[in-house]
Design a protein around this nucleic acid. Structure first.
Lengths: 252, 252
DNA sequence: AAGATACATGCAGAACCGTGCAACAACAGG
DNA sequence: CCTGTTGTTGCACGGTTCTGCATGTATCTT
C-alpha cells in the first residue's frame, strides 16, 4: 500500500465513520501504529483532520473547504448512492435516471465496472466517460434543461428499444398513498418509460423526500421492486411503506 | 512495447485499479523502474495522474472537473469558435458536432441565443444547459468514450429525423486531396449523417489540422459549404483549397 | 497516585527518487 | 552507405523519504 493511498484511506474512514482509532487502523492495514500516527499528524497539520488522543476526528464542517462541499454530494445522497451501487451486477445492464442522486450513483460506481449503463442524462453520461469497461448508451431527445435529461416523444420512443436488469429512478416525492411523484409531467412519463424497460426498478430517495408528494405520479408502489433511502427505518412513513409490501433498503 | 503504448497501459491501470505501484508495473512489463518513473513523471506533468512516493494515483475527480472548467480552449480553437458563432442565425437550427473545437463553439454562443441546437455529444449538451432560450436536442446512441459522442446505427437513425440550417463539424484532418478525415470509421459515418441533415456544412479546423489526413474520409470538398480556420490565408494548403472552390473563413 | 496507554523523538535500515551518463536505436541528410 | 542528431533506455550514484523500533515523556484511567 502506497503512503499517499493510506492517507486517502484515512480521510475516507474519517468521512464514512466519523472517527479514526490509530490502533485499529494499524492492525487493519498491517502497519505500525507509528505510521498511522505520523499520517494523522500530517493530515492535522494540513487542517484535514483534528488530532485527538487515540486517533483523530473530522474537522468541524464549517472549516471544511467550501469547494469540497460543493463537489461532494450531501451525505444522504452519498449514502443512498453507495447502497444503490450494491444492486448493480457486473455484466448486466443498468438504466440510470437523471438528477443529483443518480449522479451520485454514477460517481460511486467502481471505475472498472463492466456493465452497460443506459441513461437519458447528458450529465450522467459525461460523468461515466472515464469508466473504460462500461458500455454507455444515451437516450436522445429534447433536453429538459431544468433537470438536464432528455424527455418527450423521441426519448420515450428511444427507450422502447432497450432493456435492462435494473432501473434506478430518482423522484421528488415518496408517499404511502400518492406513490412516487415528480414535478413535471414529461419527466414523469419518461421515468415510467424507463422503469417499464427494466426487470427491477428501485427508487433512490434521500430522507428529505420521504412523506412528500409532487404534482405528477410516476409509478404506483406495486410497480417498483424497492426503495433505497437513508431515512430512519423506524420512521412512521417508512414503516407504513413496509406494510404496503415495499422492500426498503436502508443506506448508512 | 512502444513508449506511447506503455503510457496508455499506465493510464488504464490507473483507471481500473485506482493506483500504480512503480515497482510492480516495472516487473510486470519487464522494464526498469526508471522508465516507469519517467512515464509517471510525464503523465503527472500533463495532469493525467498524481505522482506519489512509490507510484501514482489518479487525479481526484473534483480536481479534474475544476480544471476542465477552468481550461480555456487553446487560442486557435477559440478564434475558430468565435468565427463560427457568426454563422449562427437566431431562430434557426444548428447541428453541433462533438470534440473540443465544437465545445469551444458551444461556450462561445451567446447566453441568450434563441435557436435550436442539435448535438450528439453529452458534453456539448451539458455545456448548453445554461442557455435558457436555446432549444436543445440530443441524438442518442452508443457513446464512444474516446471522443464523448454517440455513434452507431441508433445515432445515425436518430439523425435522420432532424433537419437544420447549419452544421458545424469538427475533423482531425483537412487535406486538399484526401478531403476531410477523422480517425474512426463510426465517427466518420456519424459526421456524414449529421452533415446530410443540414442545408450548409462548415468545417471547424484549427491550424494544426490543415494539410493533414487521418484514416477515414468524412466528406469530399464538394459536400461542404466552407472551412473555418485560424490558419494563415497565405498558407500553401489554404491557397490550394481556395482554388478547389472551398470558401475559407479566416478566424482571427 | 500508579499503572496502562498513547505520544514525540531520534535513529538506522530500507525503499524510493532524480540526475548524469553511456549504450543503443531510429531517422534525416549527405 | 555513412554520419550526425535525436530520443529512449538501463545503470550507477548520492540524496531524500519512509518505516519500525527504542526511548523517554505526556496523558488517561482507575
Amino acid at each position: 500500500m502506497l503512503a499517499a493511498e493510506r492517507r486517502d484511506h484515512l480521510l475516507g474512514l474519517l468521512a464514512r465513520k466519523g472517527k479514526i482509532v490509530a490502533k485499529e487502523v494499524a492492525a487493519e492495514l498491517g502497519i505500525s501504529e507509528d505510521s498511522v500516527r505520523r499520517d494523522l499528524r500530517d493530515l492535522a497539520a494540513e487542517g484535514l483532520c483534528q488530532r485527538v488522543y487515540g486517533g483523530a476526528l473530522p474537522v468541524s464542517p464549517a472549516v471544511v473547504d467550501y469547494e469540497a462541499r460543493q463537489t461532494v454530494a450531501p451525505d444522504g445522497k452519498r449514502k443512498v448512492a453507495s447502497a444503490a451501487v450494491g444492486l448493480v451486477r457486473p455484466g448486466g445492464a443498468l438504466i440510470l435516471d437523471g438528477g443529483t442522486t443518480a449522479l451520485a450513483v454514477a460517481r460511486a460506481l467502481p471505475a472498472d465496472l463492466d456493465c452497460t449503463v443506459i441513461t437519458h442524462s447528458p450529465t450522467i453520461a459525461a460523468a461515466l466517460l472515464d469508466h473504460p469497461q462500461a458500455e454507455l448508451f444515451l437516450l436522445g431527445g429534447r433536453v429538459f434543461k431544468h433537470s438536464a435529461v432528455t424527455c418527450g416523444a423521441a426519448a420515450v420512443e428511444a427507450a422502447q428499444n432497450i432493456s435492462a436488469d435494473l432501473c434506478l429512478l430518482g423522484v421528488t416525492g415518496v408517499h404511502p398513498e400518492a406513490g412516487l411523484t415528480t414535478g413535471d409531467a414529461e419527466e414523469a412519463a419518461m421515468k415510467r418509460a424507463l422503469s417499464a424497460r427494466a426487470a427491477d426498478t428501485y427508487i433512490l430517495a434521500s430522507s428529505e423526500k420521504i412523506g412528500t408528494a409532487s404534482r405528477f405520479r410516476v409509478l404506483p408502489w406495486k410497480k417498483v421492486s424497492g426503495l433505497i433511502t437513508d431515512a430512519d427505518p423506524q420512521d412512521t412513513v417508512v414503516e407504513q411503506l413496509k406494510t404496503l409490501g415495499v422492500e426498503v433498503l436502508v443506506a448508512s
